[in-house]
Every structure is written in structure tokens, then in C-alpha cells.
Design a protein around this nucleic acid. Structure first.
Ligand SMILES: [Mn+2]
Ligand SMILES: [Mn+2]
Ligand SMILES: [Mn+2]
Ligand SMILES: [Mn+2]
Lengths: 218, 218
DNA sequence: AAATAAATTTAGTTATGTCTAAAAATTTTT
DNA sequence: AAAAATTTTTAGACATAACTAAATTTATTT
């Protein structure tokens, strides 16, 4: 078995590579985990030793097959727990990430399979993020981030790509949740911000916000 | 906040003092936690520093008020999670202790309060052990261990005092669960073992087994 | 193609929590 | 009340996972 710190590194590498499709750099990992680059280097050596990553110094890192399977399983646990917290315990979507950061490290496979069954084998978590199944297969839904849509576009929110509390509380204040209809009224070239209509109320949102909102891809 | 190791020591001290009502010795703790006596001494110094225990060297240890509250809260979390696992995920009573050993360290107070509500504020866990409430009050039920009852006694199982897998699986094989009616047919003086009738089947159980079965106290 | 800047690694340190072996204190036996 | 046995503590070591500061490598400018 791997330690909690090792699991957090594996998950961080997986999450970063979902976005970039390149080898992951030491600095990217240190930013995500809020540790020093030197600590990251130390850990990468250990993960290499365990054959959970492919790593050459100064060249970046990627997960090995076994490392990837392991990381996906942590992601599965994270998202199933988030689903439980929202659906059954009545948490709102901005509160669950932090708690799931702890719950995802509970080891029992039987527990997570029974939880999965209890939840009815959900395919998406409360943020619209896909939940890997027992075999590690991640449901694939074609989606585009809101910032890439054109003026005049109207569609429904499929999910978000980060589950940071500040971000989600802000969305809630804007009346945006999964399924909300959003229309793009105008795009500001200068800062790439958007003027949008949400439930018939007009609002101005930044590029950074739009980038993290996913829209169904027809 | 305290570390996982500190929490385990606090809980161990609480559990031991439930049985003995005396100051807890270094060796008792090392037996429960399967660590060396030297490690226990190290940790007791740290807990003393944090004022979670009262401790003088060579004199044994007891929990301070704050240490006791803290330990009771871990016990509360342990037993609520065990209840969830049995009642909602379909685990049997012998499987849940090990998993709850991990779940009891999840920090969020809001989580445990919502779980408590979800479960309907249970007073006893799947082993018949009392669940402390939010204020740290432990339901008090008068009970006696089976070994203390006389020949001719007949009554119902209220709970067990350990939740070791081997013990619980053995009870299940004997057809003993919470509520099961047990009659004492005979007591063997030599080894204090008992011949009992369980659901109309006669069986011979050791003193060690009888000692850990609780019977309602009229 | 140097020079400069940025990213990464190495070296050395620290805190936690464990261990074994040896020393010291306490308890039990004679 | 000594001696012996047991318990507990101390001393010294080790693994994990972090850090800062310095050195090295790679990337970017000039
Ligand atoms: Mn999350
Ligand atoms: Mn999520
Ligand atoms: Mn238990
Ligand atoms: Mn229990």
C-alpha cells in the first residue's frame, strides 16, 4: 500500500495531466499541493522507485499504468464520497471537496463498492465530474468550456472543472448550478470576459470563471 | 488539531480506563496499540505537553478533561460510522471495526453531525456499544457480562464488549447476535466455561467468550 | 552564442513516530 | 530487607515527508 502523501501526489499528477496532456512539471505539482519544488523532487524519486511513475530528472513526470490505475481509483473514491455527502447528507456542492480529500484515502475496496451500489452507480458527481467505475473506466461526455462558445450561444451547464469553495459559492450566488441555462450576450475582447444571461438575469463574468464552466457539446 | 497517532493513543487510554477504572499503564497501552513501551512513553510526554493527559513518569496516565472529551468524540465517530456501515451499506457486524478505525479520524464536525441525523440519532452501535451524543454524554445501560450470571439464568444479549473479527464471527457461528436468548445450563468450575442453550441448541463456551457478552441487568 | 532567467535538483536540517538495547525505577518474591 | 523480576524510561537510530539555501540544468533573451 501507499502512504497518504504518495496518494496525494499521484492524484495531483493525474489531475494536471487531464488538463495538459503533456509530461507534468515539478513546479505544477508543487503549486497544486502547496509544497516546495524540492519536496516534489524527493517524492518523484520515491514514486519512480515504486514504479508508479515514469520520471527522468529535468524531463518531467507521467504516471505509469499501475500509477494511473491507482490514481483513478482515488478519484473514484473522492467523487463517490462527494456524491454521498450531497445526495444523502444534505451538504451543498461547495462544502464537499475538502471532506472528500480525507475520505478518498479510506482503504477498503469493499466499502467503496458498497457505497457505489448504495448510491445507485452514479456516473457523475455533484460538480458534474465523471466518476470512474470499478474497472477504472471514466465516462466520457463531450463538453466544451463556456469561454469557447460564441456570442448568441444558449445552452445548459453540464458541470464545472474545479471544486474550489470560493468558485462554487460564487456560482451559486450567480444562480448557476448544473442544468442552468446560460446565454452569451457579448464577449469583451480586452479581457475575454463575457456578458451572459442566466435565468433571465444579465451578468458579467470573467474569463477565468467561464473557462471552468462546462457546456454540453452538441 | 491532533495527529492520527495522538488520536489513537487517546482512544486507547479511554478504552482501557473503561475496563479498569485505574491509571493506565505504559504496557497496557503498548499491548492495545501494538507498539513498543518506549514509543508509548514518548507519546505520553507529547500528550502531557498538550495537556491531553495527566501523567507522571512511572505512575501511569489518565486523560485530562479535554483529553477525555476528545477521546469520546473519536469513539462517537467510530460507532456512528459502524452503524452506517451495517445499517445502510449492508456490512455485517464483524467487518466494520477495521474500517471505522480509519473513518473515525475524518475531521469535519459537520459531517459527523449530519451523519448522526441521517442515522436517526442512534444510541447504540451494531455491537450494542453506546454511542456518545454531540455533547459527549454516553448512554448508560445497566448490564452484566454473561460469565457473572448463575446457572438457571435466561436472558437476552444486549451487546458485546470487543469488536474483534474472530470473536464476532465465532458468535455468529454460535447463532449469537444482539437480542439472542441465552440460558445457562451449567458452569464448569475448573476453567469457568459455560454450557448454554442458544435458540434451543446446547453449546459449550469459554469464560473468555462469556466475559465479553453483555446481558441486560434487570 | 553568450548572458540571463527560470526551473529543477541536491545538500543539509527538522519534526513525527517508530524501533532496539541499556539503564533506572518499581514491584514482587524470597 | 535484599534479591530478583518486571515495568518503565532514556539513549541512540531510522524512515517519512516536509523545509531552505545553494548548485545545476534547461529555457529564454539579448
Ligand atoms: Mn472534489
Ligand atoms: Mn467533484
Ligand atoms: Mn469498533
Ligand atoms: Mn462497535
Amino acid at each position: 500500500m501507499n502512504t497518504l502523501a504518495e496518494e496525494n501526489y499521484l492524484k495531483a499528477i493525474l489531475n494536471i495531466s487531464f488538463n495538459t496532456n503533456k509530461k507534468v512539471s515539478t513546479n505544477e505539482i508543487s503549486n497544486v499541493l502547496k509544497t516546495s519544488p524540492a519536496s516534489v523532487t524527493d517524492m518523484l524519486k520515491k514514486l519512480l522507485e515504486k514504479k508508479l511513475v515514469e520520471y527522468e530528472k529535468y524531463k518531467g513526470v507521467e504516471l505509469s499504468n499501475s500509477g494511473k490505475q491507482y490514481a483513478i481509483n482515488i478519484l473514484r473514491k473522492h467523487r463517490l464520497w462527494e456524491t454521498f455527502l450531497v445526495e444523502h447528507l444534505g451538504f451543498n456542492w461547495s462544502e464537499v471537496h475538502e471532506i472528500a480529500e480525507e475520505l478518498e484515502h479510506i482503504k477498503s475496496t469493499k466499502l467503496i463498492d458498497k457505497l457505489d451500489a448504495f448510491l445507485g452507480y452514479p456516473k457523475f458527481d455533484p460538480h458534474g465530474e465523471p466518476i470512474p467505475n470499478k474497472e477504472g473506466v471514466i465516462p466520457n461526455v463531450k463538453s466544451t468550456s463556456l469561454d469557447q462558445m460564441e456570442v448568441g450561444f444558449a445552452g445548459h451547464v453540464l458541470g464545472v472543472t474545479i471544486d474550489d469553495k470560493l468558485f462554487l459559492d460564487y456560482l451559486t450566488k450567480l444562480n448557476i448550478k448544473i442544468g442552468t441555462k446560460i446565454e452569451i450576450i457579448q464577449k469583451i475582447d480586452f479581457d475575454k470576459s463575457l456578458i451572459v444571461r442566466i435565468e433571465n438575469i444579465q451578468n458579467h463574468i470573467s474569463f477565468d470563471v467561464a473557462k471552468n464552466i462546462l457546456i454540453k457539446n452538441n
